[in-house]
Amino acid sequence: MREIVLDTETTGFDPESGDRIVEIGAVELWNHVATGQTYHQYINPERDMPQEAFEVHGLSAEFLSDKPRFAEIAQAFLDFVGDAKLVIHNASFDMKFINAELKWLNRPAIPFDRAVDTLLIARKRFPGAPASLDALCRRFGIDNSARTLHGALLDSEILAEVYLELTGGRQPDFALSTEPSGTARGESELWRPQPRPKKLPPRITEAEREAHEAFVAKLGEEALWRA
């Protein structure tokens, strides 16, 4: 099962008032496992951006001025998304903007039933509790310290972790099953997760590394871990 965890950044709150998308970030999941394939694009909104929006996104009019317009990246974005489910936090907001941009290009809208709204999932699972992305990161112990500004790709990467916590996750079956769940045979034969283009940074701390080395040292020179 292929899913795309997606986030957009915009100039405001209402595309019908002229607000536009300025950034799209997306992360690919296969059977709830991140494949390392991502999509990221800054977009020239073709309009002025309110100062408060610049401050939130850490962007500038000068930075966006030479970026492609949505019309120039629409096909590449749709090709990456394909027919996958779209995992979005507050899906109605992002879907509203994406479909407005597609409508202005006379392209078909993406059906809303393709969206999986993690905000609704969180509110159903934790009634009355804060359900923002930052609140869910605190609840699940997910490191979002790099999220000092809103960025579409970083937010989609963090949301992918939150989504797996919300849904209970799913371990890969190591290809032991003859027919992967929710996947047609032809599709499973044609596609396999690819190696990450960039290795994930280690999460072990220096103190943990030193404690491990001290433990191994106590095992003697013949210890397997010293081989």
Rank of each mutant, 00 (worst) to 15 (best):
P197Y: 10
T148H: 10
L164P: 01
T183R: 13
L153D: 12
E161P: 02
E179F: 01
V162I: 13
G168S: 08
L153Q: 12
D173Y: 02
L176R: 14
P201F: 00
E157N: 06
A160G: 14
A146M: 07
E189R: 15
R196L: 15
E165P: 00
D173M: 01
R192G: 04
A175V: 01
E165S: 10
G151C: 08
R192H: 15
S156H: 04
I158G: 05
A184V: 03
E189H: 10
T167H: 10
E187S: 14
S181Q: 13
A160P: 12
G151A: 11
N144A: 15
Q194N: 05
K199P: 04
G182Y: 01
P202A: 05
G151L: 00
P195Y: 03
R170Y: 01
N144V: 00
Q194C: 01
A152Q: 09
T148V: 15
E161H: 14
G169H: 10
I158K: 03
P202H: 07
R192A: 14
S177A: 12
R170V: 03
P197D: 04
T178M: 03
P202C: 02
L154A: 07
L200V: 03
R196T: 02
E179H: 11
T148P: 01
L154V: 11
G169S: 12
P193Y: 08
F174L: 10
N144L: 04
P202Q: 09
T167A: 09
R170F: 00
Y163A: 05
E189A: 15
E165Y: 10
E165A: 12
Y163T: 09
S181G: 03
D155P: 08
P193Q: 09
S177M: 05
D155S: 14
L149E: 04
R185T: 04
E187V: 12
